[in-house]
């Protein structure tokens, strides 16, 4: 198997679940992606996908309510395969209800999930192992 020219990475960080921490989520992602040999456009797209997923936790798992709970974001790259894990203790995700709005239905809202799906190769919701309730995994092959 050909070796990837992209460095292996394994980083995780906790963030308090609130909208004012989304900028810190982006800073963390930018720091990590700075170490990867991928183009700036792709880095920006990945930051957007991660920030949208984090925003969904604030909005949907916690209804944008005040909490002291933290979410954990884990970014791993191995042989050019990127996997981003999101762990939270909010309301369990109802997988059947997750869908982005139809893109030709022009109205505010519902675009975050569409962006995530556009950018990433795969989006998987899993039941979190204790103490987590939700575990979302976004993945993408960076070798393409």
């Amino acid at each position: 198997m050909e070796q990837s020219h992209i460095a292996n990475v394994d980083e995780k960080r906790d963030f308090e679940v609130n909208s004012s921490n989304l900028k810190h989520v982006r800073s963390f992602c930018r720091e990590v992606f700075e170490r990867l040999n991928i183009n700036q456009e792709l880095k920006d797209e990945l930051v957007l996908a991660i920030a949208e997923a984090a925003q969904n936790i604030v909005k949907h798992a916690y209804n944008n309510e005040q909490t002291e709970d933290k979410m954990e974001i884990k970014i791993s790259v191995s042989d050019g395969h990127l996997e981003i894990g999101f762990f939270d203790k909010g309301r369990p995700v109802e997988k059947d209800k997750i869908r982005h709005r139809k893109i030709d239905d022009i109205k505010p809202g519902g675009l975050g999930t569409f962006f995530i799906q556009q950018i990433m190769d795969a989006v998987v919701f899993k039941e979190g192992e204790k103490p987590w309730i939700n575990h979302l995994i976004l993945s993408k092959n960076l070798n393409n």
Binding site: L48, K107, P108, G112
Partner: peptide, 16 residues
């Protein structure tokens, strides 16, 4: 320098 889906929603809402 950065806008996410929430920012896009503001643009749509303003336009409408």
């Amino acid at each position: 320098q950065y806008m996410d889906s929430s920012g896009i929603s503001v643009l749509i809402e303003s336009h409408q």
